[in-house]
Design a protein around this nucleic acid. Structure first.
Lengths: 206, 206, 206, 206
DNA sequence: CATGAATGAGGATTCATTCAT
DNA sequence: AATGAATGAATCCTCATTCAT
């Protein structure tokens, strides 16, 4: 019997446990359908303990979706800095990073959460636009402009629509979280084909 | 006294009213946060009356999301039938249709609903894959294959990944639903630029 | 078996039932210790039904203490109007009225409630001061002044302290609700003796 | 580092600190609305420490209200002992004592506490009647009787109703606690005027 | 059919009390 | 002894659903 009553843990660790449990619950059932008791049970603690770390359900949710995003960001930032890196390679890296850090981890449910619950939590949406989307698009814009100047884009007009680069990533997330069970999608192929479509073939330029 | 109480309407119409009200409510607040009373109020009827038409909240939701999709479908089906229609034009029409029938109507919230509530209602997800996604991809696959055979695609590999065509549509929905308030996205430009990227320029292919 | 399920009553009556039940509960146990379920049970209805008539516990309490006072007031108002009524008789009537309408009814717990919970509900205190105390003191002031002018007060200075007339009433309430079980107090005697103390003996003036 | 944690104080002092904190809290918010943590915080100690001195919340409350009364008592007792002290002066002293020791200290909330929580703690009510009320009335009865015998009372019947002397004191507490914010009451005047009413004027009795 | 008052299970949150440190 | 994190019973309130009118 794993009778682990009144286990006292490092507050930071406890907090992390709760966030992990909350992420699992919210991912599976959404904000409204998740009971605080579920989160507690999943974290292996009592109902009341959650409230020692988060003031209420909404705060738990908000901190959760806000906090999970940050780590992704740092890695993207670097991609545009070095001009020596070919834009196509940088964007290819963006997809690879996205695949490894989001799509193939539990974080893939994050976007679903934001999309699903966003309108109910404007602060979250605003945060995501400001901190993630806006910055990501900024980097992409630089990369696309650089590519356009170097004649590497099949359609230079795309340099003004960095969102287009995000589209397949978004699709991969939606597909994976909703339809993968019914029909497989090879996301690697998707990203490769998309890159190949955006960029002039490597050897064939000129 | 203009007693308009207990107005008796055509049951079919009443049913449609409820579904319309339900869609508005569910779109705005999600399944859990929508109260049956809200739906009734929006439909201009009493709480109990809803139950004369739908056995319970879940059934209302399920019938709703299922029913809303059908009208979209019919129009897409025709696009691939006529071989005389140039594939590029057909796909352009697909985007136009999507814009007019989904993006610029309240139906744009549909995806959010499915994404948000899908995990709680697997039947809905399954239905959407089978009835909408699967069929839509089928049509696109035919069109892309035809385009590839005619040498109209810049990257013929795309013929096997019709999801790529959907990606910008998906992005447009997500953007409109979540971020439009913070930063405008010109969806027409997005679709046009994407089409231009997919297809070999009409006259100018060397 | 008195199985009286889903009994539909006149809303006004239902409301009154709830208020009566709430009064009993709040009187016995105070605001905090009273459970809404207790009130419902006492009113013979389900928990949720209370909320159809009062938005929350606090509103129930506030309406209760505010509403109970009103009927008392009307009768007092008249006492000062007629100059022909001797002040001593009017004040004697005041005590009699108080005894019959408050002290000897369940309303006697009202004051205890206000005294006990007042500081937690400033709106209630304010209401009582404005609607009851202030008006009552106004009437008393007129009566005492008249009595002083006619030389009927043993100590004319009291005309400026109408609160003194209320003191025995207050005492009777406190005694009755707290200590009557341990030691009897003859309130009639108390009021009579008090009157006799305030006023110059009837025959002996001049 | 001026580590002042885990300060060890004299247990008696610690206990007194807790009682003082508890009185402040209970006075302000009542029994139910006071959290043990509030008491602890106010006493400058940790939640658990309270339980080292009092078994539970109820015991803390009971010991508190019982303990607070004792100091008042001793001083009153003496008033009746010395026959040389004129009754009027003794009762005047009673009011003065009451004013200084109760009305103008935080003890003025005591009555409210007892009145509010009495029904939930019969032992407290009983204690107060036995230890305070009963003894106080005993002293007053002696004084009034003595005054009556010496012809100093305007209305000798009062000798049998010592509660009458308490009435203005009670009123002053209630007024101060509830209504002072809305309308000022000069309690000194109240007591003086009442004394003047009870007793035959010193020199001027015709 | 339509109504909306009534029901009561369910979930968020609080807080007295315990106990490992 | 002192601490304060952890516990979970208790309570307010909501809302899907029912049913008497």
């Amino acid at each position: 019997m794993p009778e682990r009553k009144r286990e006292k843990r490092d507050p930071q660790q406890r907090r992390a446990d709760i966030l992990a449990a909350a992420f699992a619950c919210f991912s599976e059932r959404g904000f409204a359908a998740t009971r605080m008791e579920d989160v507690a049970a999943r974290a292996g603690i009592a109902k009341g303990t959650v409230y020692l770390h988060f003031p209420d359900k909404e705060a738990l949710f908000t901190e959760l979706v806000s906090g999970i995003a940050s780590p992704i960001l740092g890695q993207i930032d670097g991609l545009a800095a070095n001009e020596a890196i070919p834009p196509r390679f940088a964007i290819s890296m963006f997809y690879t990073l996205f695949k490894r850090e989001v799509l193939e981890t539990e974080r893939r449910h994050l976007l679903r959460l934001i999309l699903a619950e966003g309108p109910m939590f404007p602060a979250v949406t605003e945060f995501y636009h400001r901190e993630i989307i806006s910055k990501g698009l900024g980097v992409l814009r630089i990369l696309l402009k650089r590519a356009a100047e170097r004649g590497e884009l099949r359609n230079p007009a795309i340099a003004e629509l960095p969102q287009i680069v995000i589209a397949p990533a978004l699709l991969s997330i939606v597909w994976t979280t909703l339809f993968e069970g019914y029909e497989h999608l090879d996301t690697q192929k998707l990203f490769d084909a998309f890159l190949e479509t955006l960029f002039v073939p490597e050897g064939g330029a000129k």
